[in-house]
Structures are given as C-alpha cells and as structure tokens.
Amino acid sequence: MFRTFDHTADVGIEAEADSREELFAEMARALFSLIVERPEAIEPLRQVTVELPPDDDDYLLFDWLNELLFRFDTDRLVFGRFEVRLDESGLHGTVAGEPLDPARHQLGHEVKAITYHELRLWEENGRWKARVIVDI
C-alpha cells in the first residue's frame, strides 16, 4: 500500500507493508506511479537485477530508489514488478518492466532525484513504514 503526498514544489511518497522487503517493493511502485501515468499497464518483458551493498535501512532504501531512477533515466526502462531480498550482504532485487513506449506510456513527472530530506524507515506495531521526498 502506498500513497503520494504534497510538498510545495516537490512530491513525497510513503508506503507500508508487512515486511521490509515488501516495503522496498511498495516504495518502488510508488516511485513509478509518479513517473508514468498508468503503471499497471507496464508489461514485465525485461528482467533486470539490482545488487546494492549493505547500509543503514533508510540509506539502503534511498540507494534502491535511486538505482531504479538511474536505470529509467539512462536505459529508458519502466518497471512494474519488484522483488527484493535483504541480507547481511546487502540488497538483491529482481525487477521487471519494458522499454518506454510513448505510444502506450504517458509520462508523468520528471523525477530529478530522491532526497534525504525527511527520509524515514521504521517499524510500527509489526508494520514496516517509510517516507521519502523526491525532487521534481
């Protein structure tokens, strides 16, 4: 479950899930809901793996979103499916999506960057939650 929220010139995303792994996937869905208008229309035609070294949970979430944004920006790939595994060696992600097709994907925002401002990841009553503000 995710939602976006207001921040004057920019936009925030927040999500919650039963596990840290699902939370990371949910935040990725939130990110792509900003980038394309109908993320549910993204076909999982291409699979890509993401490997990240360990860091504090919040920094790792930052790095994860950042890496997905980078892949979108350079390879023009949009993603709709996300699987994440976290262990002592860091983050292991498998994501699926397809090349951006302007005929089928209406672009939403140009997300310039993920920011550290109010970046938070925490556990509350057995639920994992996170929020982050992205620069538009």
């Binding site: 921040h7 004057t8 010139a9 920019d10 920011t115 550290y116 401002h117 109010e118 503000i133 620069d135």
Partner: peptide
C-alpha cells in the same frame, strides 16, 4: 522563498 529540502528555495 518556499519550502525545499534541506535548504529552502
């Protein structure tokens, strides 16, 4: 000025 992240705009 308006609300930014870190520094205000």
């Amino acid at each position: 000025i308006h609300w930014g992240y870190g520094f205000c705009i």
